[in-house]
Nucleic acid binder design. Sequence first.
DNA 1: CGTTACGATTGACTTCGATCAACATCGTAC
DNA 2: GTACGATGTTGATCGAAGTCAATCGTAACG
Lengths: 226, 226
Amino acid sequence: MHTQTMTVRKSQSHPAAPLPPQAASHHGETIEFMGAVMPFARNAEIYGENEPAEYLYKVVSGAVRTYRVLNDGRRQIGAFCLPGDVFGLEVGDHHSFSAEAIVDCKVMLIKRSSLVSLATRSPDVARQLWTLAATELQRAQDHTMLLIKTAQERVAGFLLEMAQRARCAEAVELPMSRQDIADYLGLTIETVSRTLTQLENSAAIAVPTSRRIVLRNQAALNRLNG
Amino acid sequence: MHTQTMTVRKSQSHPAAPLPPQAASHHGETIEFMGAVMPFARNAEIYGENEPAEYLYKVVSGAVRTYRVLNDGRRQIGAFCLPGDVFGLEVGDHHSFSAEAIVDCKVMLIKRSSLVSLATRSPDVARQLWTLAATELQRAQDHTMLLIKTAQERVAGFLLEMAQRARCAEAVELPMSRQDIADYLGLTIETVSRTLTQLENSAAIAVPTSRRIVLRNQAALNRLNG
DNA sequence: CGTTACGATTGACTTCGATCAACATCGTAC
DNA sequence: GTACGATGTTGATCGAAGTCAATCGTAACG
């Protein structure tokens, strides 16, 4: 019921980007190369809920969480964004989530206005935008399926998801705290912790350090995942 | 843990549409007028999970549910689609949800292939497609927020959502069963039923018949919604 | 070093919603 | 009408996860 963590407010609507923006080449246009890279410190806010959505964001390095807070303080993390992931895509012109750096990270900023105008001229860019939105949709739907499961299933599912995205099936280095995991899975830190030790006791995983999880028995995890 | 309802399998990948498809006009193109309307009986399957996504669908009359089933039989309803709502939009070329008619209804089918090719030529259509995906995303995210709440909050939120969509703030005529509601909210039918009587006892709503809910005190519902 | 501070774990207890079961209501067919 | 099946409600009990609280690392800093 508390859940809120400290946010370091660092930049009031990103001023001058520190790295020069690269112009989009005329043919073979892709949103990949339209932005300027900007660093964010651990726990720094990248944007806030209800702020105007001026930019689209892409993680270059580090990790980002997007989240919403209910008026009683409960926080729901919508997504963990790892290098390569895009976030901040919005329907309207305001952000419906907040975004914070989980660790020190670099993020590429892409001007929304230029992207939109480009999309009207380039079917290719339009298709890329569409794909992004659709991928996000897919992710959100999968997240919904997580939330109807038991604690064991949620944690197992989370670990498998992270392992898959980390491109290392054997072990995962988690950039986020237990609180972040809990708020992503709709559980409490205590339940997350307990479930992890359960999984460790059943030899499905090993937890050498709190941030590092070794997947000892992926088949068992998949079975638990439901 | 059971939850599954009877599905009337009616049409194996929609044969000839009974009503003639209308051609899209060349200017002012809109996906609204590209389809053929087709009727579905109560509980008939419109498409199944993992089937190729040949069409985009729009509810003309009646109501539709989209859902996924976990391998142990738990069903999660992703959305209730009312007249005007579009569903069946997919990232890949296969459906990630199933769709069934909740009541007898009419649905417009729009060929995916023609829509995609049209979108590459018409920025206008591309933008409409984008908006649809983004709206779906919004909906999915709101649904996620529902699932982290208490039973009271979920039911209150559900009623408010339905009332808003029904364009009648005073009362809602629910087309779906308690089981459908439960599977949408991640609860059991018993909990849904109990919560409704709680709300009735606290004078927030009235339930003249099981399918009709009168919102007596919308402010109270909003407060409960969290 | 020791001390502090924060995150993570563990334990004791409570609570909310699930489960199991009985009963009520409604619609439809006979 | 009555009988039946489907749907919805209510009650009693159980269990999974939340809450409250103590303790245990681990890292940062004097």
